[in-house]
Design a protein around this nucleic acid. Structure first.
Lengths: 165, 165
DNA sequence: TATTGTTATACTCTATAACTATA
DNA sequence: TATAGTTATAGAGTATAACAATA
């Protein structure tokens, strides 16, 4: 496929039809806007911004939320399992886990069948926090994707999973 | 909507039905897998990995590619316009532009109507590189989303844009 | 010998404050 | 006074190497 190279207006020239409008013209993004990677990142950034804003009250970043949500549904999971599931490198999970332990949200107990491992469990405080946080995230996700119908949102998630699963 | 909390198996217990399989059980991701943000990031990571692998020969990272592609279709665009279009902060674009100037891919010329600004232009070498790079990216994107039909890929891009545009 | 959790560390990416020169 | 480009710098996120304890 040849590179689509129709109309290459010099951004230096005045806007077409405009009376010498020097205002910030929108640039032509014809190539980028067709890319899955570019668009996935842009959409992710929008959700991320709203996430940061809404989850600040809970003191949770995205990685924290993912870990707590995973532990809520997988009590006793190990560090290694969390890393494998979330594609986080073990050294980068350590301080995250330690911080949530300090906050009293999780506990590290000896693993029943592997002396090297530690089973991670939510404390009652952790259970309550993640329950609230999950509701907040569902709400914020709905707002971030408000221009999509419920059906479209489902389609979007399914297609994204076809890319990475 | 109440938090879906059916079946909470202890990850510590043996796999259901399995004969004491201690192997890495897949964790239950029932909450995360419904989120647009989580899935958009996972899909983006897959495309990103392939991008890095394939674009190393051109010495281009994603930000470099975006800038060159934008300049190819918007000759004379300013730093400020690139920042606004790509959501990059001005200080973070400086070294990127300087590096591509050093490589002889772009030129900074005085802006015809604003003495503060600089118009950015691709050199012939830059034009050739981005032409090849764009073809490589189109190819790599097709591979990364190979499990999607052309129609699905179009739908995915359209739905992502509905989230951030 | 391989794996879990960990420390230390480095590199990249992103963000903020402040300066200069033009408008 | 406001804006374009720049410098310096700080913080977050992500990466590798190497170690102790256990399998």
């Amino acid at each position: 496929m040849a590179t689509t190279r129709k109309k290459i207006p010099d951004a230096t020239a005045p806007a077409t039809g405009g009376a010498a409008a020097l205002k910030a013209e929108r640039l032509d993004t014809s190539v980028l806007e067709k890319l899955v990677g570019y668009n996935a990142r842009r959409a992710w950034l929008v959700v991320t911004a709203l996430f940061a804003e809404r989850m600040a009250v809970y003191g949770l970043k995205q990685a924290d939320f993912s870990v707590l949500s995973l532990l809520a549904h997988n009590p006793g999971a190990t560090s290694r399992e969390l890393c494998a599931t979330l594609d986080i490198l073990p050294p980068n999970l350590v301080s995250l886990i330690a911080a949530m332990d300090s906050r009293g949200l999780i506990e590290r107990r000896p693993h029943p069948r592997d002396g090297r491992a530690l089973g991670l469990h939510l404390t009652p405080a952790g259970e309550q926090l993640i329950a609230e946080a999950e509701r907040a995230v569902v709400q914020l996700e709905a707002e971030a994707s408000a221009r999509l119908s419920a059906r479209e949102r489902g389609t979007l998630v399914r297609l994204l999973q076809k890319v990475y699963l």
